[in-house]
Write a protein that binds this DNA or RNA. Structure first.
Lengths: 349, 349
DNA sequence: CAACAAAGAAAAATCGATTTACGCATTCTT
DNA sequence: AAGAATGCGTAAATCGATTTTTCTTTGTTG
């Protein structure tokens, strides 16, 4: 009997109340830490809670609030280290504040992004951390605005007129990559990337180009981009090389681009850095153990997650004022995949 | 006014009811697809729903049920492709059934695992997909049993007396790796891995050893394992090689082990497959673009996720019977990192 | 000591659904 | 044609908390 009750039905606030000989309202106050309860009664409540193993039902607890203690997170994907770490961080930060994080993957689809958002709106989430598939001007952000949702935009965004934004300082990082490559003597550089529409791609491209041209006006910068899918990018890159183009360095604006570039190098039998140099935006654990180690721009995941949550909770708690656009500085790790083009000329194709 | 209402307060079932001129109970029935409502009334409800943009509040809707339409997922981490894909799949499957997935990372800690589970129990989740940090005998599974929770155990498990389990067929895959390596002529093989306590490590090790010995009784198999952390493993591996041990192939039982092995090869200037062969459990996208491409055992993520959810929902819907332990077959991709030891002897250290 | 203020707790309303119990017409049996 | 069965709805109870309102006490003060 007792056993069965333990297993089947959890004690409610009323069970605690009757056990402690007080009303449910008093139990609620004690649980919430309100101080206007006589110490003696509070103790009786604590004892009953202990005895019954009572824990507040967060679902019932959220019923009466307009803003529930749930945060939604929407990421383009979960498979990469970047978003994996991001979700881990966000979850941890939400938990610290007593919120539950519900994460969902838009799987690189703007349509799904909006569907997920609608479902999160159904849950009356207190706020949303959205890493949009393309940029801040998509239907998802519009949905959030139209429905008066609280949220923060991260990663593939620059700034918005309704929401706070937090992203990596792509332009500065790209400028540093440009300095490194120009400094090493590269004068013909190919930039590859996915996500033509992503706000950050423009920033990365422009930041790179401006700095490279400023340092070496004679530099030639070619660009090969594709929208969402990897295969079109691969095809375009293949065409580019098939035309006989022979840049001395490749700068990839996204992780997937780095993988595509590497696999094209493989196909052609080129090795880094002797035949060609490579540096990519987005670091990954494997990049430091391969031979050669791959140079990469490291995004400050913790800072992005931290500031995003900070901004979000400030808004949830009623913070006013114009939206803030934050840019977090990146680190550029120049590894073995980058060398000097002088050294790469001895055995030309 | 109207605008404000649109933005601030979402319509409730009562708003729909009064607009349609019926009771809330009738609206509830129409939304649930009950057929005992007069078509005319149903139409009025649909119209009102359309007009007001009404959507059921899942939180309120779950209030009255014992089993809420929420599924919990606990993974050791989110940073690797394997668990990233797993969460993506689980989320998609939960959504298909009208459930919300709440995912959390135990960050490789059994203590956190239990805390998360307690929180999910507070939410009265209908079921849990748990990928335990160590194995099925940890405190998390015990907690689930003690509280009568419904759940499925995946990945680092073999079988359990209370829960259905789904995992990769580590033993068979390892046997195939053994056949490949022995077939290529390797007679001194090092097995490295993390997670001594993981159920699957034992299976992988035993499967490998049994088959290798059966095919080549003279084979020498060394083992270097560490519990949870990467650094102790790295140190042990370094010691092992420092002693002058010179296996012709390394089989890593976990992704992190593969990374550690690769970085140790780097340190010593060894190249695959000429100086040493390498094959790892767990595939990753980058493994096919590096030079050499890294041989790997591919785990069937979709199958594991699919069968886990199938088993879970069967139990949620009251399915009886003894727990089922499922093993899903893996694919072994032999890539360039594996060669013949004959070829690797020309330039010995 | 009457009058009034402040404390503290209980009662009741509320959040937004679902579900049960029951009422009122019709329709079906025999 | 009386009684049972059925179809379709509604009112009210319920889920488990929080919050507002009301009601006792107790304490203070003129």
């Amino acid at each position: 009997m007792a056993h069965r009750q333990d297993q089947q039905r959890r004690p409610s606030i009323h069970d605690v109340a009757s056990r402690a000989g007080v009303s449910a309202a008093t139990v609620s106050k004690v649980m919430a830490g309100v101080t206007t309860v006589k110490p003696e009664n509070a103790q009786r409540v604590f004892d009953a809670v202990e005895l019954l193993g009572y824990r507040v039902d967060p679902l019932a607890s959220d019923m009466r609030r307009a803003k529930r203690r749930i945060i939604g997170a929407i990421m383009p994907e979960f498979e990469s280290e970047f978003f994996g770490q991001m979700v881990t961080q966000l979850e941890s930060l939400a938990e610290q504040r007593g919120y539950t994080l519900v994460a969902a993957s838009s799987r690189e689809s703007e349509a799904r992004e909006t569907e997920i958002l609608a479902r999160m709106h159904d849950w009356r989430v207190a706020g949303v951390v959205l890493a949009p598939v393309r940029n801040e001007h998509g239907p998802a952000a519009a949905f959030m605005k139209a429905n008066g949702m609280t949220g923060v935009l991260i990663d593939r965004v620059l700034s918005d007129d309704a929401f706070d934004t937090v992203s990596a300082d792509s332009a500065s990082a790209s400028a540093e990559v440009a300095r490194e490559l120009i400094g090493k003597g590269h004068r013909h550089i190919l930039v590859v990337g996915l996500g033509e529409q992503a706000a950050t791609v423009r920033a990365r491209l422009d930041g790179f180009r401006a700095t490279a041209r400023a340092l070496a006006p004679d530099v030639r910068i070619d660009v090969v981009l594709a929208e969402t899918d990897v295969e079109p990018l691969r095809a375009r890159l293949r065409d580019y090389f098939a035309k006989g183009e022979r840049p001395t360095a490749v700068y990839s604006l996204f992780l997937k681009g780095t993988l595509v570039a590497l696999s094209e190098f493989r196909r052609r039998g080129w090795h880094c850095p002797n035949d060609i140099s490579l540096v990519g935006f987005d670091d990954a654990e494997w990049m430091q153990v391969t031979w050669p180690a791959i140079a990469a721009v490291v995004q400050p995941v913790r800072q992005i997650a931290g500031h995003a949550m900070e901004a979000l909770f400030a808004r949830i708690e009623g913070g006013e004022g114009p939206p803030i656009a934050r840019l977090e500085p990146c680190r550029v790790l120049m590894r073995e995949s980058v060398g000097s083009p002088i050294l790469s000329q001895p055995n030309p194709t």
